[in-house]
Design a protein around this nucleic acid. Structure first.
Length: 109
DNA sequence: TTCCTGACTCTGA
DNA sequence: ATCAGAGCCAGGA
């Protein structure tokens, strides 16, 4: 396998690992940071392989702050619990005060 | 090689 | 303001 091919996933994982504690980001933000603003779905798709890795996928949500990927987690509210455990208020799969906990790699990095 | 699916996002009504 | 539809890229069969 070519390193370039894996580079995309590797970058996604790398950025996800860079997400600070108590902060969340969106797929589009990561995609944009990687130079593929239109590949937001690919970022989420890449997260499918993040299981078993050190990638805090629970800190990655969609642009609306909705936990769309929580269904892919082991439990049903596991993702929400993880976020709440970090001080992030989540109600009905919706992150509250998203603006305050939002973390943009393009701006922070 | 082609077709299908998907943890998204944007634009239009 | 909210709701619905189309577009986009990458990976797997």
């Amino acid at each position: 396998m070519k390193p370039e091919t894996l580079n995309f996933y590797d970058k996604v994982y790398a950025v996800a690992k860079l997400i600070p504690y108590g902060r969340v980001t969106s797929y589009g933000a990561i995609a944009k940071y990687l130079g593929a603003a239109r590949s937001a779905r690919i970022v989420g798709y890449a997260m499918n392989g993040s299981h078993g890795k050190d990638v805090p996928a629970h800190r990655v949500v969609n642009r609306k702050g909705l936990l769309t990927g929580k269904h892919h987690f082991d439990g049903t509210n596991l993702m929400q619990q993880l976020l709440e455990s970090e001080g992030i208020e989540v109600i009905e799969n919706q992150i509250q005060n998203l603006k305050s906990v939002y973390w943009d790699p393009s701006e922070e990095l």
